[in-house]
């Protein structure tokens, strides 16, 4: 047990030291972007991996979150904290619209519905110019401040890391509880779950609500971090990227989103050798494709295994957790 604690400590230390060692503001900015994506991917792990409800339209929630906070802060004079709350709330409300089709549809049909939802939201963002300023986007979104100090990239980094830690605890407790069991039962066999007394509608609403709320929070972070948002950040390709992150990390693993998002973000950078500029995106997407096709459980289990190998197994991991 002692050795495991050391292991966790080392990882925590690496996470804390990262921006101090890197020191490079742009790299930390990119890391922040990937952490924001990690929040969305964590929501997708909950909704898709645990509850079995696919979504290929999460860029819409990301966008709704980003626009809600920006517009409430800029046009209604909300304090930023309230803008964040409004973003999350708005996404949860919209998630109800999307979960209603899921009462009836699943698999491909549900995925097409979520794609349609994503597109509809995007088209509205582009065209409702009086509200969103259309394709030009929204400028001058204020950044976060604390005690009069404007947040720099490193501040955002620590805030994001803390947020992700909390969200991780949140989904861990939920998925390890009777609720998570209902999610998984619904995912594995909806009919059998219902005949076992599970009201799947409630759990679909909950799963969509959680992941939409996560995406809304991510959108709010993105808006205030970058200071500028425009519709092109919320296109369909982004939705597929989020799902790709969750799958690369491990769709059925609690760490899936947290591991997947930075890997998908930084993988292309690894191939950015001089003279290779044209190939790096292709190489990165090829590797992700290979992971998705050949490693259905993603990379998180590998990380877990590696960690266990170095720092020892959890005592209660095999058999009788409460025995």
């Amino acid at each position: 047990m002692q050795r495991r604690k050391i292991g966790f400590l080392i990882i925590a230390l690496l996470v804390v030291l990262y921006p101090l060692v890197i020191g490079d503001s742009y790299k930390v900015y990119i890391m922040n972007r990937s952490l924001i994506h990690a929040i969305i991917a964590m929501g997708l792990v909950t909704q898709v991996g645990f509850a079995g409800q696919i979504s290929l339209g999460h860029a819409a929630f990301y966008g709704i979150g980003a626009y809600t906070t920006s517009l409430t802060v800029l046009k209604l004079g909300f304090p930023i904290g309230l803008g964040f709350l409004a973003a999350i709330l708005m996404c949860v409300i919209f998630s109800v619209f999307l979960s209603v089709p899921s009462f009836k549809l699943s698999g491909f049909f549900l995925s097409l519905t979520t794609i349609a939802f994503g597109h509809i939201v995007w088209v509205i963002i582009v065209n409702w110019q009086s509200l969103t300023n259309g394709p030009l986007g929204v400028f001058g979104i204020p950044g976060l401040k604390l005690f009069g100090i404007k947040f720099n990239n490193t501040h955002y980094y620590y805030l994001l890391v803390a947020t992700i830690a909390l969200l991780y605890l949140f989904i861990k407790r939920i998925t390890n509880s009777f609720i998570g069991r209902a999610f998984m039962a619904m995912r594995d066999d909806e009919l059998a779950a219902e005949c076992s007394g599970i009201n799947t509608r409630n759990f679909k609403l909950l799963a969509f609500g959680i992941s939409a709320g996560f995406a809304g929070l991510a959108g709010a972070f993105y808006a205030h971090l970058s200071g500028f948002i425009s519709p092109e950040s919320f296109v369909f390709a982004e939705s597929t990227k989020f799902v790709g992150m969750a799958v690369t990390g491990g769709l059925r693993h609690l760490l899936g989103g947290i591991i997947g998002a930075p890997i998908v973000t930084f993988l292309p950078e690894l191939f950015r050798f001089p003279g290779w500029e044209t190939y790096y995106m292709m190489a990165a997407t090829f590797i992700i494709l290979m992971i998705v096709v050949f490693m259905p459980d993603g990379l998180a289990p590998l990380f877990e295994k590696g960690f266990n190998k170095i720092f020892g197994e959890r005592d209660d991991v095999k058999g009788g957790s409460s025995e």
């Binding site: 597929t240 292709m282 090829f286 992700i288 259905p296």
Partner: peptide
């Protein structure tokens, strides 16, 4: 690969989506 290990629809959806992205990038190259 996916059907061989009795993978679900979800896996197929995701894998073909990633295939599409790869093919886009391949085409660009």
């Amino acid at each position: 690969q996916i059907m061989g290990r009795k993978g679900g629809r979800l896996e197929f959806i995701v894998a073909t989506m990633m295939l599409n992205i790869f093919l886009l990038n391949l085409t660009i190259v």
